[in-house]
Design a protein around this nucleic acid. Structure first.
Lengths: 205, 205
DNA sequence: CTTGTAGTTGACTAAATAGTAAACTAAATC
DNA sequence: GATTTAGTTTACTATTTAGTCAACTACAAG
């Protein structure tokens, strides 16, 4: 009952886009409102602060957008190593698109935001950590499957997943700082090497 | 002639410390002045903006502090793999100290700052990129030496160095976000594995 | 010991930003 | 179609922040 609106969603989308493109600290509430075409009064109707909006935006973006993408790429009907290889391939292609659209390599919004203000805002810290952990679990599961089928050597799958994820986020960060996609282009092969993929040629097609 | 002062150095040190601990966006010129015990008028006597101060602080910190540390760790009188292993060991220990001092894992100031604001401030982007590139060269040179002596497999040393560096920075970022040093503790071994070190046990002692 | 000058101070202005409140509007439901 | 209520708008205040300026101070060198 009462008036309906998608202003809340518009605010979350605008916030995430601006924070990704610029950074948390460089984005004002006014700027988010402008981008979302929402007046500031409405902003404070839905959220108490920029921090609260950011947390909501991160979760919404995962639940309604990224989760499905990860589920698809890491589908159990794809071979484990191919899941990982194609994940890095899609990530690269996604960044290519972003660079075209924004004139800049943007990297990973969640990691950049988390690293920026984890020491200053506990709620955002917890939410970014949470989402990053979810992502690592996709790696972990694929690695375990690959080990089970013998396409990579046995070993601590959790540790390998963290390692692969650090490589991924480090590369995205470098790509953003240098505004250069080369770091990401080679990731599919680098990842296979790092895991010690035995049937490299078969997987890489 | 005229009055002498170390206010410029105090400003650079304060800026780097605060940016490292918080982030670029969360640190105001007033806060830097307070920390440095310098009045704002003096700030503008030495620098035109926060951005200019940050660039100067990054370079000063490398030239007068970090360069010597890297030179020592990557000394040619140490075996190539031991250079790399001990680099990660020292990095870990440094972060342990920082966590004690600040109550937080801080990670890498240069990478965090670069990633935060590379899309918004070209001067800072260039300076962070420059310093990170210098660091990668230490890795590259050690990897080449290790390959030459046969302690790791041959291969593209530049690519391997970038990969190792991405792993390093990604791990520091994760450690900061999660405020957990575990990511860094295991890096010495992880790095050796990643490089395919043949005499792992000998090097690791 | 005086003079030139590098550096300091505090008080100021202007602008950006966060946050508030009360009147207003539109649609869902009865 | 009256009523309720979710959502909108505008104009406002208060605060923080960047940036300026002119008077002031201390020291190094002649």
């Amino acid at each position: 009952m009462g008036r309906t609106s998608n202003a809340k969603e518009r605010l979350m989308n605008a916030a995430l886009e601006l924070i990704w493109e610029r950074s948390y600290g460089q984005v004002t509430i006014d700027a988010i409102c402008d981008q979302a075409k929402v007046k500031k009064g409405s902003f404070y109707y839905f959220f108490d602060s920029k921090s609260e909006l950011a947390v909501a935006a991160l979760e919404e973006n995962w639940a309604n957008c990224n989760k499905a993408k990860w589920d698809k790429v890491f589908s159990a009907s794809t071979s484990p190593l191919e899941r990982i290889r194609s994940f890095f391939q899609f990530s690269y292609e996604g960044q290519v698109e972003l660079q075209k659209e924004y004139g800049q390599v943007l990297g990973c919004a969640c990691f950049s935001l988390g690293s920026e203000i984890s020491t200053q805002d506990e709620a955002i810290r917890v939410k970014t950590q949470e989402i990053l952990q979810r992502q690592i679990r996709y790696f972990e599961s694929a690695i375990r499957d690959a080990q089970a089928e013998g396409s990579i050597p046995a070993g601590d799958a959790t540790a390998k997943a963290k390692c692969l994820f650090a490589l991924f986020e480090g590369s995205l960060g470098q790509a953003r700082i240098q505004n250069d996609l080369e770091f990401l282009r080679v990731l599919p092969e680098t990842a296979m090497e790092l895991l010690g993929a035995k049937a490299l040629e078969a997987v890489a097609g």
